[in-house]
Design a protein around this nucleic acid. Structure first.
Lengths: 222, 222
DNA sequence: ATTAATATTTAGGCTATCCTAAATATTTGC
DNA sequence: GCAAATATTTAGGATAGCCTAAATATTAAT
């Protein structure tokens, strides 16, 4: 059984090497200030983590996650983000309040719990901050989802989430035929209020206010 | 901030002195075997707990919860049981599976979380094992709820819960006009299958199978 | 009431985790 | 390419828990 402390270190290393090249090593310096602890503690923990084969550690160079470490990190991130969705969508916490509680909930050990929570939440793919939730196998999209307002005219993308569980927004969207997975294209941007005219699933068209577009997260087709 | 270990001790002392007289002292012996630890560890922890004023401790006599300790214990029990309801009613875990996970969840610190969870679950008063859930002020009924099958003819009681979130049972009950708070009296017990004939709220009467009565929890009027 | 049995505490150690200060490597500036 | 600045590790020590074995209290039995 792993201590909370070990899990915190692993998650921090993952976070700090997000988007960096493979085998990116995190220095004790950077990790210590991220975790608000001393470099000495990090140095010591690096040895312990290397022992347990969670990281590859070269003294004076820093640590990088091993496959085993990355798997643990991603499962923590998955739990963290699923709990954030729960707190926001089911308990009505604001997106800015969910982090600290999820920080504790992510350490609950139960594979079955995670599985059932995922199903209960209807298999969400993004959390209330717009970050992707790794799937059960640990896969996670590389880019961060961006709001529909950042899609330029002619751009084609897929809806991956909505940044608010406000039921009015959701009902507006379902009324217009927009949901998770909907493929859309920006046809034009109207003058004055910047409303978007969209083509949905290459068929119908719909108009959506700037305010609504800000809360819709998309993943652009490459 | 309190450690998980301290919380476990406090909860164990509460559990072991449940139903006993006020100021009932729990011996190191009993507590050690309950927590599967050594008596020496308990003895040591007793000193720490007494220091922090969670217990009154007389060496060689054992420890009893102080008001502060009792308050902490009850808040842990409350969280534990609320999470059990969540796991059972919302995530579909069997009542026998919920304990171990709730054991971890009860240590999550957030007053607001507990409050919102309580509301989300619609302020339940019993957990999936039929135990009462302390309210936000820490009040908890003394007796355990018992199944309707244990109410004798002529006995009057109030429905305090249902031991299964099986929606078929719930819809059967609402169809018959039985819900939380319904006051009922056993008019007769039918031969052969032990079905109960009940008087509801001193007005209508209803018949209920033994199988259904087993899952309905009541609190007898004194 | 004294001894035998039982319960409890103390002593002495262990590990994980943290800390500060000192020692050692590495990097950078000239 | 060496000295100064910076980064990293090691040394030494603290605390919370846990353990076993030894010492001490209490209780029970004759």
């Amino acid at each position: 059984m792993l201590s909370q402390s070990i899990e915190d270190y692993i998650k921090a290393i993952w976070t700090l090497s997000e988007g960096k090249e493979d085998k990116y090593a995190v220095s004790t310096n950077v990790l210590a200030s991220h975790l608000m602890t001393s470099q000495a503690s990090v140095s010591e923990m690096y040895k312990r983590l290397a022992d347990k084969e969670f990281i590859d550690y070269i003294p004076y160079q820093g640590g990088s996650l091993s496959p085993k470490g990355r798997q643990l990190a991603v499962s923590l991130i998955r739990k963290h983000r699923l709990w954030e969705v729960f707190l926001h969508a089911k308990l009505g916490f604001g997106w800015e309040e969910v982090h600290d509680i999820a920080e504790q909930l992510e350490h609950i050990h139960s594979h079955e719990l995670t599985k059932r929570l995922d199903a209960f939440l209807d298999y969400p793919s993004i959390d209330p901050h717009g970050d992707y939730i790794p799937d059960a196998e640990g896969n996670i999209p590389k880019q961060r989802a961006k709001p529909l307002t950042e899609l330029t005219i002619g751009g084609v993308a897929k809806v991956v989430g909505v940044l608010d569980s406000n039921s009015k927004l959701l009902s507006l969207l379902s009324q217009k035929g927009i949901g998770l997975g909907t493929s859309l294209c920006v046809q034009s941007i109207l003058p004055f209020d910047d409303s978007r005219v969209l083509t949905l699933n290459e068929k119908q068209s719909a108009e959506l206010s700037y305010k609504a577009c800000e809360l819709i997260l998309i993943q652009e087709n490459r």
